[in-house]
């Protein structure tokens, strides 16, 4: 086999219209050699999950600044389960209060990165998470 690239969907669910953070992360993942599928703004959970399936993504990164993170994380994780795709790694970031993070991890999120996280930290975490996921295939 030549090389199996890491494919990541970076998605912006819901109504917040600010995607600077999502773009910074997308760019960092690109520079780490990953193929990043960017969905653009204002996506429904259905669109995001369907994109993950169509693109054969290893992971989906969700950026939320609107405060609706608990709803969207849960919804997307549940829908992936329904579609028999619970192996897809879900991670995210944005403006998410520390108090809400344990709940998201409990629900099945792999990691939540807050504002100011150095991008190499995300990259390193994701590389490890994907390697672990693939070792189970």
């Amino acid at each position: 086999m030549d090389e199996r690239k890491i494919r990541v969907v970076v998605a912006k669910p819901g109504l917040d219209g600010h995607d600077r953070g999502a773009k910074v992360v997308a760019r960092a993942l690109r520079d780490a050699g990953m193929e990043v599928i960017y969905t653009g703004l204002r996506q429904t959970p259905e669109q995001i999950v369907e994109t993950v399936l169509q693109e054969d993504a290893d992971a989906v990164g969700i950026s939320i600044l609107s405060g609706a993170h608990t709803f969207y994380f849960n919804k997307i994780i549940d829908m992936l389960k329904e579609k028999d795709a619970s192996d897809v790694i879900v991670f995210g970031g944005g403006v998410i209060p520390d108090a809400d993070i344990p709940g998201l991890l409990e629900a099945g999120a792999g990691a939540v990165f807050g504002p100011g996280t150095p991008t190499p930290e995300c990259v390193e975490w994701l590389e490890k998470a994907v390697a672990e996921k693939r070792s189970k295939e």
């Binding site: 090389e3 690239k5 997308a26 760019r27 993942l29 690109r30 520079d31 780490a32 050699g33 990953m34 193929e35 990043v36 599928i37 960017y38 969905t39 653009g40 996506q43 429904t44 259905e46 669109q47 369907e50 994109t51 169509q54 693109e55």
Partner: peptide, 19 residues
């Protein structure tokens, strides 16, 4: 050509057909 990575963003314009 440097990292081998890519930003694949054509589908932004087509997302309404996803689903």
């Amino acid at each position: 050509p440097f990292s081998g990575g890519a930003i694949l963003a054509d589908r932004i314009r087509m997302q309404r057909h996803t689903g």
